Amino acid sequence: MAILIFFIAHWYLSLFTQTFFYHRYASHDAFTMNKNWERFFYILSYITQGSSYMSPHAYAIMHRMHHAYTDTDKDPHSPRHSKNVFAMMMRTNKVYLGIYNGSLPVDEKFKKNVPDWPAFDRFALTWTSSVFWSLVYITYYIYFATAWWMYLLIPVHILMGPVHGTIVNWFAHKYGYRNFDVNNTSRNLLPVDVVMLGEAYHNNHHKYPSRINFGGVRWHEIDPVYPVIRVLDWLHIIRVKNTSLKRMEVEF
């Protein structure tokens, strides 16, 4: 039971910071927050993602490129241009690292209003940090695992961020249903998304990229993060932009 609780908690906490902070805030600028709260969510992302922490700055730029170049040869992660899911993961990582270290030229339009905390990223993205978090996961399993097969979950903990990204960027461009006839292969992977916190409504998202509610097109499409965003807006921790509620087509 302890292993199951730990796995589920890590899955959803990591996924929340990815979809709330990296995706809806950093990538799509759907709401604003002050610098102190931004740095709070930087640190929270580091804690929840651990060994698979990515720079929100580089992630946001890469994701904007995905929307601008979806399914073309410039798309950082399109199933159309990779032989299998592992090849796509390697391609994504290569583009991400190129953006992060500055070796990949990036159009200035993709950098607008992207959060950046270089000093923190330099600390969080060290090998020492990755090894530390990996040892934390392994140690927990040593103390609480009750069967050998439980140890097979450790690689998912270590690669939690890429696992989440792969589910959406590979499977949600190949399987599922479509609400909108957009100019790409995006699909809604799940009719009720309690697994990916709304990220599985990928066809909806490609139609309305900056809307804070990824679901809501059909009665059964419930985005669990949407009410959280509304509460945080009510508490003035974030400020939702009116355009994120109304806008149908956006730049990215």
Rank of each mutant, 00 (worst) to 15 (best):
F16I: 00
T48G: 05
H157A: 04
D107Q: 12
L235R: 07
K74S: 07
M248K: 15
G102F: 05
V217W: 04
L15P: 01
L15Y: 08
W219D: 08
I229L: 02
S55E: 08
N93R: 14
F180A: 10
A124K: 02
Y25R: 01
L104G: 13
R230I: 11
Y12R: 05
V182F: 10
D75F: 08
V156G: 07
L190H: 06
V131I: 15
W234V: 06
S210G: 10
G165C: 01
L44Y: 08
F123H: 05
T92P: 00
D29W: 12
N179T: 03
T17V: 07
M90S: 15
M150Y: 05
R178L: 01
V95I: 14
N169I: 00
I8E: 04
H236L: 11
W170K: 03
A68T: 13
A87C: 10
W234L: 11
K174L: 14
N93F: 12
H205K: 07
K241V: 01
V131C: 10
N183E: 14
A60G: 12
I138N: 04
N93W: 14
L13T: 15
L152W: 08
N203A: 06
I3F: 11
P224R: 00
H63V: 11
V250A: 14
D75P: 05
N242V: 08
I99A: 05
W37S: 01
I43R: 09
F86Y: 13
L159R: 08
A147R: 15
K246A: 03
D75L: 04
A200Y: 01
L104R: 14
V131E: 07
Y59R: 01
N169D: 01
Y22W: 09
V156F: 15
A119N: 11
S78A: 13
A9W: 13
K241W: 06
K35F: 08
F144P: 00
T32W: 13
N93S: 12
N188Y: 03
F214M: 11
F144G: 01
R80P: 03
P209Y: 00
W117I: 15
F132V: 06
N204F: 01
Y141P: 07
H157S: 06
W133K: 09
I8M: 13
E249L: 09
E108S: 12
H202D: 01
Y69N: 13
A26I: 04
A147D: 10
